[in-house]
Design a protein around this nucleic acid. Structure first.
Length: 185
DNA sequence: TTAGTGATATCC
DNA sequence: GATATCACTAAA
């Protein structure tokens, strides 16, 4: 079971977002218990030029973390209720990140953080430290389809239309579903 | 369809 | 200091 490296996250966010689909998000709680959820959906937010990206308006107290080195965790509170998990990608000083939008076992960005007890405490920590949160590759392979990003009505039409959301391909037949579930175990 | 919830940014 | 805005979810 290989933990994903700095080199994996240092690539452009579109590549990282695509390749994170199917990987295992691993959480270690304070009491030592481990949880593993398989990532099924991500979105890429690609720097100051991307009007959907939080860093679109440059550095602020909140977006400072996006300028950090690849593998830095960005967690923020959305709508006063939901913690959303992102991982910073690319070269340092490039404010880009991948939003983890869903896992197979916990669909929805707010629901997966709830399932894994992820809060703002993890903001600015590293996903490479293998302490409280990291990502593993267990060799699982799957098809990935793209779609438009969700909930970014404030962005330019051009950026809203970009296919920067990456989703584990849905199974079309019962046979495919059986094969899929077998691979999960 | 809409309420709920609070940090952040932006405007006085 | 006040206000508007939100990378969402569950309930109705």
């Amino acid at each position: 079971m290989a933990m994903l490296s700095y080199e994996f996250f240092r690539r452009p966010c579109l590549e990282v977002a695509h390749d994170l689909v199917g990987k295992l998000l691993v959480r270690r709680l304070p009491d030592g218990t481990l949880q593993r959820l398989r990532i099924s959906e991500t979105e890429a937010y690609c720097g100051e030029e991307d009007t959907a990206c939080h860093a679109h308006k440059g550095r602020t107290k909140r977006t400072e973390v996006l300028y950090a080195d690849a593998g830095t965790i960005y967690v923020y509170l959305c709508y006063g209720i939901h913690w959303l998990l992102n991982i910073v990608t690319g070269e340092e000083e490039q404010p880009q990140a991948v939003l983890i939008r869903a896992c197979v076992e916990a669909p929805g960005p707010g629901r997966l953080t709830k399932a894994l007890s992820i809060t703002g405490d993890l903001n600015r920590k590293s996903i490479l430290a293998q302490e409280q949160l990291w990502v593993e590759d267990d060799g699982f392979q799957c098809d990935v389809v793209t779609d438009k990003r969700v909930g970014i009505g404030y962005a330019s039409q051009e950026d809203q239309d970009r296919l920067w959301r990456f989703i584990m391909n849905q199974m079309k037949t019962p046979v495919e579903s059986m094969i899929f579930l077998t691979k999960l175990i």
